[in-house]
């Protein structure tokens, strides 16, 4: 169990990075198309980033718990 926890964290980071990248990609596209909507796009983007990040953080807690146990 102890050896697999870092690998699990790496995999979680992998997925989280893809998700965050997709969000950033979409937001950048939208901002480039409509520069006047940047404020709203940033708000929505930050909310989406927060929700994606939370999944990764939950994984981190599970992984750290199994590391310390």
């Amino acid at each position: 169990m102890l050896e697999q926890a870092p690998l699990a964290l790496g995999l979680a980071a992998f997925g989280c990075a893809i998700g965050l990248g997709l969000i950033g990609f979409g937001a950048m596209n939208g901002m480039a198309r409509q520069p006047e909507a940047i404020g709203k796009l940033q708000t929505a983007m930050l909310i989406a980033l927060a929700f994606v990040e939370l999944v990764f953080l939950l994984t981190v807690f599970v992984g750290l718990g199994s590391l310390k146990a």
């Binding site: 927060a50 990040e53 939370l54 953080l57 939950l58 981190v60 807690f61």
Partner: peptide, 13 residues
């Protein structure tokens, strides 16, 4: 849970 864990995870992490 989501509000507290997000903040905790980011700063502690």
């Amino acid at each position: 849970v989501s509000l507290s864990l997000r903040l905790y995870g980011n700063i502690f992490g």
